[in-house]
């Protein structure tokens, strides 16, 4: 009540506050606008999609584009494929990255520093340098046209995520680990029962990163998958492009369905995620 009276007496405070929100809201609106276009186009009739001048909202709402999307491409198949690749990659990441991170952070051996160096070096290496020989390895193994090239690397550890988990593990107090060792716990038990539970936030962040990367990956499916039955959504969506025209309505409907899981994971893990981005960059 007093606050209200106060603000009435001094209206410029309110105005300054409100004024400040305007540029922030405009900034957010600029970034969100393309999303809105995607979302509303997905609910437009063909007549509304091709209207000049363009209108953001559909005049007539329809679900036809979603039905069309399922008709024109094997959407569920592509979705299942994408989910399989992402799920397996996440599994690989949460199994391997903490192990390697532990070797650089908490095992006292001479290899800890060189190993960290190798991890950092790998992070810096342009992927084009290894692209062709790696393709030739998979080709030699007869694995081009399978999911192996998309999944196996995650089981061998992703440098950026190893580094992120390592930075977190370094802060686990050595006394805890020493105590477990004195109690006669094996190195692996110390790792699994003491360090892993503490490092859980970092591992969850790594899992979210890996999921989003695999979910949105374009280049690797493009290079390695040949059989349309194996396509992930990233490369499957091109089917909406015809010889002369593009089925924009159904394409946008499929885009909405493809984007939603990534956005959902992001919103759930948001706290971890944004923290992880800046922590990885600054430390």
């Amino acid at each position: 009540m007093t606050a209200l009276a106060e603000s009435r007496r001094r209206p410029w405070i309110l105005r300054r506050r409100t004024r400040r929100i305007v540029p922030v809201a405009i900034l957010a609106a600029v970034f969100v606008f393309p999303f809105a276009v995607m979302l509303f186009t997905a609910f437009k009739t063909p007549g509304d999609v091709f209207s000049t001048p363009p209108a953001l909202l559909p005049r007539e709402w329809t679900l036809d584009n979603f039905a069309e999307a399922f008709d024109q491409i094997p959407f569920w198949r592509y979705l299942a494929n994408t989910l399989f690749v992402s799920g397996m990659s996440v599994l690989g990441t949460i199994v391997s990255c903490p192990l390697v991170a532990y070797a650089t952070a908490k095992v006292r051996w001479r290899g800890a520093r060189p190993l960290l160096g190798a991890v950092l070096l790998t992070m810096m290496l342009p992927p084009q340098v290894t692209l062709i020989p790696v393709f030739l390895i998979w080709n030699g193994l007869g694995a081009v046209g399978t999911y192996l090239p998309l999944i196996v690397p995650a089981f061998l550890g992703t440098p950026f995520l190893i580094f992120m988990i390592r930075q977190f593990m370094v802060s686990v107090p050595d006394e805890l680990i020493e105590a477990a060792r004195i109690d006669g716990a094996s190195e692996f038990r110390t790792y699994a029962q003491i360090v892993l539970p503490i490092a859980r936030p970092a591992i969850v962040t790594a899992a979210v990163f890996q999921f989003v990367w695999s979910w949105t990956d374009f280049l690797n499916p493009l290079i390695y998958l040949g059989d349309p039955d194996q396509y992930t959504l990233s490369i499957g969506l091109y089917s909406f492009f015809g010889e002369n025209d593009v089925a924009w309505g159904p394409l946008m409907a499929a885009c909405v369905m493809f984007t939603l899981p990534a956005v959902a994971i992001f919103l759930v893990g948001q706290r971890f995620f944004i923290g992880g981005v800046s922590a990885g960059a600054l430390k």
């Binding site: 062709i132 020989p133 390895i137």
Partner: peptide, 28 residues
């Protein structure tokens, strides 16, 4: 023993590094 422990924990990355980084750099 510690070196062996370290190597065991680092094994996934060491394998990946040898096969997908070190060899490909030389090969390319």
């Amino acid at each position: 023993r510690r070196a062996l422990t370290g190597l065991a924990f680092a094994a996934p990355f060491l394998m990946g590094f040898a096969i997908f980084i070190a060899y490909p750099i030389g090969a390319s």
